[in-house]
Nucleic acid binder design. Structure first.
Lengths: 162, 162
DNA sequence: TCAATTCCCACGAAAACCCATTGAATCCCG
DNA sequence: CGGGATTCAATGGGTTTTCGTGGGAATTGA
């Protein structure tokens, strides 16, 4: 597998009154290098109180990964069911949204609620995908490494001083 | 693993008013021989009060290693969480910055603070990666071998005489 | 018709780009 | 071997472009 271009870095962007958010340029760059889409796929993260996001090309890859998992651990009826459930989550519970010429998406209301995103969205690159957080929720989560919280605090501070 | 080209040597460069720093040419040479990118990845060093830097190719290698680890030992929820945490640290807590035709990067403010880099940056090659130090902090660190501090002192002296 | 969505333009700050200078290292050729 | 010429690296400064963001006009649809 191994994707050539990886999402990395962090940024804090505003969600305006219309629900628009700029996808940071450095993430858009990766999306457009991976494929020629100007679109992102949004999903609720499986483990954290945030959204998971990626490009359409990655969605296909993810599907292939699930298939492989099934074929490896197959024979068990549990595995089959789990596969069905994962597949549902991977595709039905996601939304694909395009970004405009200035790099903004219109955050879908359902996703905004699922991710509990308020007026400010924290973007975190995680390699194959990236995450979108309500920064306050990240700071509260005990599973998040302290060093990363420092970064979130720095971004908040940076923005506050303007 | 084993990368063919290794970072070595030391240099002291200025950080100007705009936050720009020249990446020493001998380090750039290694980056461009490893891959064809003209960018470096910056991260806070895990142990020292400095920054760790490397090329994107090395970052991808690191990622592939993590992936393999997960696919081998997965299913345990602990393993899954640890994977998430490592991924966050490896990608969200780092920044990728391009250098221009004259070999300079714009040191991101967050990294500059994390590494406590002032007006002068000390570059040290360490094989697979290189480090960027505030020279004063290096001289103060008791864990740094005296011989290395001598090199730092020499570089400072060299520069002072101009 | 009114509300909501999409499109378009505008602005300020920041980043990327371009050019110029200096000093050091290297080359070249007698 | 020496010394002038040439190249390259590091750095300073100005200009252009991009990015994130707000707001208004146009369009859609109930």
């Amino acid at each position: 597998m191994a994707l050539e271009h990886l999402f990395q870095g962090s940024a804090l962007n505003a969600v305006d009154a219309k629900g628009r958010v700029s996808i940071p340029a450095f993430l858009r760059g990766v999306i457009e290098r991976r494929g020629d889409a100007r679109t992102i796929v949004l999903a609720k993260h499986e483990a954290f109180a945030c959204l998971s996001a990626y490009d359409p090309a990655y969605a296909a890859l993810k599907h292939a990964k699930l298939e492989r998992l099934l074929e490896k651990g197959e024979t068990s009826p549990d595995a089959e069911l789990e596969y069905q459930q994962r597949n549902l989550m991977a595709f039905a519970a996601t939304e694909e949204v395009p970004y405009d010429s200035s790099g903004r998406i219109l955050m879908p209301p359902m996703m905004r609620r699922k991710g509990q995103i308020g007026e400010i969205a924290l973007f975190l690159g995680t390699g194959e995908t990236f995450q979108i957080w309500n920064p306050d929720l990240l700071l509260k989560d005990p599973r998040i490494p302290e060093d990363l919280k420092d970064i979130a605090r720095f971004r908040l501070e940076e923005r506050g001083q303007q």
